[in-house]
Simulated assay, not measured.
Amino acid sequence: FYPVLVEQEKNIHLNQDEDIALYGDADKLSKVFSNVIKNAISYSKDHTDINIDVHSTHDDVIIKVINKGKEIPQEKLNRIFENFYRLDSARTSRTGGSGLGLAIAKEIVELHHGSIFASSDKEETVFTITLPKN
């Protein structure tokens, strides 16, 4: 992500608990994180930070990807995990994604018996991924 971050004058900050262990398919989970982080970069305002918070509970690992950008209306929040759905219909596959990234992320998370959802307000958009430790 470095070239895009530099170009848009953005930074990513990772805040995490120590000693977090998560068992799962590393290749598939890396696609989840890649898709969600790409989305955060694409839809955040220039010159802003993207925060990734990783915390552990007794049973789960909770990952939050937080970016500053336009508020996503509730009716669109309910659809962003659908195949081929794009927030901005003006985006093309050259300037944006195919509309599959978040749908793929959701499918992989659910295959790991986890959940993914998004919330948004005027200040920030938060993607929350919850995965069981075992």
Rank of each mutant, 00 (worst) to 15 (best):
D121H: 06
I50L: 10
R91M: 08
G114L: 08
I116V: 13
S30D: 10
H58C: 04
N15G: 06
G97A: 12
Y85G: 01
N51P: 02
T128W: 03
G101N: 07
Y43P: 04
P3Y: 13
H113I: 05
N134Q: 13
D121E: 05
A21E: 09
S42M: 11
I62W: 01
K31H: 12
I12L: 11
D60V: 08
T48R: 09
I80Y: 09
N39T: 14
E123M: 08
V4G: 02
I37P: 04
N134D: 04
N83S: 10
H112K: 08
S44E: 01
S98D: 10
A40C: 13
H55Y: 03
I72F: 09
V126H: 08
K64W: 00
K68G: 01
H112F: 12
T130R: 12
S56Q: 12
G99D: 13
R91F: 11
N35T: 01
I63K: 01
S115A: 13
T125I: 09
L131G: 08
Q8A: 04
K31D: 10
D27K: 09
I41F: 10
I50P: 01
I129S: 08
I62G: 03
L29N: 00
F127I: 12
G97F: 11
E124P: 00
E123G: 04
L87S: 08
I108M: 08
I66F: 01
Q8W: 06
H113D: 07
P132R: 05
E107A: 14
T128P: 06
N83D: 07
R94A: 14
V32Y: 05
R91D: 11
D88H: 07
S34N: 15
A40M: 06
H113C: 05
G114C: 06
K10S: 02
E82Q: 14
E82P: 03
L111T: 09
Q74K: 13
S42H: 11
F84P: 00
T57F: 13
A40N: 07
I62P: 03
A103F: 14
V4L: 15
P73A: 04
S30P: 00
P73S: 01
E110S: 06
D60M: 11
I66V: 15
I72S: 03
Y85P: 10
K10A: 03
K45V: 03
Y85H: 14
A21H: 04
A26W: 04
P73Q: 02
Y23E: 09
V54M: 10
N15W: 10
F81T: 03
S115V: 09
A26R: 15
H47I: 06
S44L: 11
A21C: 11
L100N: 08
H112S: 14
S42Y: 12
Y2S: 13
N83Q: 14
N134E: 10
D53N: 15
D121K: 05
A105M: 04
L77K: 07
E124V: 03
E124N: 08
T128Y: 02
I37E: 07
V109G: 02
R79W: 13
K70G: 07
L111V: 07
Y85C: 11
N134G: 12
N83C: 12
V4N: 09
I41V: 14
S119I: 04
K122Y: 01
P3N: 10
N78D: 08
K122S: 02
D46T: 13
V4T: 13
E7G: 02
